[in-house]
Design a protein around this nucleic acid. Structure first.
Lengths: 248, 248
DNA sequence: CGTGATTGAACATCAGTGATGTTCGAAACT
DNA sequence: AGTTTCGAACATCACTGATGTTCAATCACG
């Protein structure tokens, strides 16, 4: 686990912590801790005060992208590989924001298809590809996450029809359907789902226990769910609800 | 001058050149030349054949972005500084693609304004800024240049009204007006100009002698031209045509 | 079909960059 | 005023990316 993540979790759990304590906890020097706190403060994770920092992470909000990106990478890669296998050359795909979908993007780099990513991270991962046709939606990128949102994004999606939408999410269950932390994100996901004939959800196992604030869509609107949970209650709940679940 | 640029020009001037000759010319090893040629071939600058490479650069087309980016940097920075000075905090600005406008983007990083760049390079330069509101237009990024073009871009521009448009171009003269190498680019520039109340052209001196294929707009639609040419005939031509010219 | 030139993969080397630690003067809190 | 905290500046170190060298495989041409 990276030191930044370690710090952010320690501060979140304690509410607030001093620089010296964090230095002792991580084994790094106080100067390094200060630099880390500066970074985390810029990301909105916490707030500095003289001698320490207090957490700004609300329960029910999402930790910033930079802290999630190297989390659970193995599972994400395996899920992404399966998703990429479900996509055929020549298809047009709209690709959601989030770290799992970013892994999918990396795998599509040399494929011959049309892709519209909903996050600038994925756009950057694909912008050097000569093989595929890259479409960028308009919108306002949310800081850190770089997920595109707002009326421009919705307008871009409404003017196009895709073969497949690959959607990530923050929570997924048979009961509550697909949910997201951010309201704007949720409406973008909805628009993406509405613009595609086929919908694939890419969801690592940890999301299957979670339910977030904003409702996106019922599970009935998903054609397939790709996840890394194996022989799990929650997977059974989804299949019972009539969803095709593919395990990576 | 970078070795890549040196190679690309030598091959363009000779039509085709051998690896050994290029190694002698640049002082690098043949292996390095091969790697360089691979890079340039991927950019579409030239075509490899066994033992050498032949140029693919058409007269009248634009050398790829990566080769222009570190060219004339001083002049571009000075022009960009003047342009940035013409913009007020709180303004909404549409920022054209190209290396000069990219320098402008870098200077806007910590300003409090709304910016819509027309190239992903500038988007990336600004995406970490907490101060400004970044808007991304939709579109298809042209490889290398990463300039956004196409119907999505035009639609994004048509749905917005900006205070100022900062436009770069490939050619500018009193006689032919503003011109661009790429037809799609030209229509995007036109749309950007149409969506803004005030239009500033950022043009280094070398563009004032050039005229490119696609007409963008007459000089009468420009409110100001920022350039680094000092006491030049061409500048006089522009001022005679009623354009406000600011020299950096 | 053979021969010599060309290629690219693998490894060595080196410089430049980024992360970390240390020091010390300035600023802030009590 | 005294103590603590901060951050700028510099030193250090690991790592990455660029370059060169070597050598076996491949290609073109006679």
């Amino acid at each position: 686990m990276s030191r930044l993540k370690q710090i952010s979790e320690a501060v979140r759990d304690a509410g607030s912590l001093g620089v010296a304590e964090l230095a002792a906890l991580t084994g790094a020097s106080e100067m390094t801790i200060r630099r880390d706190l500066e970074v985390l403060a810029a990301q909105g994770v916490l707030e500095r005060y003289r001698g320490g920092a207090r957490s700004l992470l609300l329960r029910g909000s999402e930790p910033p992208f930079a802290l999630r990106s190297d989390e659970n990478t193995d599972a994400k890669r395996r899920i992404a590989a399966v998703v990429a296998g479900l996509l055929a050359d020549g298809e047009s795909v709209v690709l959601d924001s989030g770290t799992t979908c970013l892994e999918v993007a990396r795998l599509l780099h040399d494929r011959r298809m049309t892709v519209m990513p909903l996050s600038l991270h994925a756009v950057n991962a694909l912008s050097s590809s000569p093989a595929l046709t890259l479409l960028v939606p308009g919108g306002r990128p949310r800081p850190g996450e770089l997920a595109l949102t707002g009326p421009l994004t919705l307008a871009s999606l409404e003017s196009l029809r895709f073969d497949t939408a690959v959607i990530g999410c923050c929570g997924l269950s048979a009961e509550h359907g697909m949910t997201a932390f951010d309201l704007e994100d949720a409406s973008v996901k909805r628009a993406a789902i509405a613009s595609a004939r086929r919908v694939i959800a890419a969801v690592d196992a940890s999301k299957l226990t979670r339910t977030a604030l904003a409702h996106v869509a019922p599970v009935s609107s998903l054609d397939a769910v790709v996840t890394d949970a194996d022989g799990d209650d929650r997977v059974q709940g989804l299949t019972a609800a009539g969803v095709t679940v593919v395990t990576a």
